[in-house]
């Protein structure tokens, strides 16, 4: 079975992918309001990601979700570096998993809230 890691793209990330082969693989979802790229991985890589992060899970769309932000950032950086959506992107991230786990551990204590007005 194939599993998917979605990476959402804001303006900064869209610019980083401009002119690369990945640009043509950017999808617009939810009425065009979100831009996303998808990396497909097999059972083995899925298993490694789930093993690495306690919160990670597979959702109803076969997407690997609830991974730390540090992991998602690393996946995006690797996509931009390799200019590819191949499974190798995730394998490269898993090769430095200890470093990402350290970042994720810090992130599990604090994430900055968006600056929007609340009641």
């Amino acid at each position: 079975m194939e599993y998917i890691i979605e990476v959402f793209l804001d303006e900064y990330r869209l610019n980083k992918l401009k002119g690369t082969p990945v640009e043509s693989q950017i999808d617009a979802v939810f009425g065009g309001e979100l831009k996303v790229v998808r990396v497909k991985v097999g059972e083995e890589v899925k298993g490694e990601v789930l093993k690495a992060f306690e919160t990670a899970r597979i959702d109803s769309r076969a997407c690997i979700t609830d991974t730390p932000v540090a992991f998602k950032r690393a996946v995006f950086d690797e996509i931009a570096k390799q200019k590819s959506l191949n499974e190798d992107v995730v394998k490269a991230v898993l090769a430095r998993i200890n470093e990402i786990k350290d970042l994720a551990a810090k992130e599990s204590e604090f994430l900055p809230a968006p600056e929007i007005e609340t009641d």
Partner: peptide, 30 residues
């Protein structure tokens, strides 16, 4: 899916109104 929205929230991306009401997101941020 809830997981998809959690992914957006964690990265500080406000989910589009088509998937989460802005008032609901404000409560999350509160």
């Amino acid at each position: 899916s809830g997981s998809l929205i959690r992914g957006l929230v964690a990265e500080g991306v406000q989910p589009p109104v088509i998937i989460m009401r802005p008032e609901v997101f404000k409560v999350v941020v509160k």
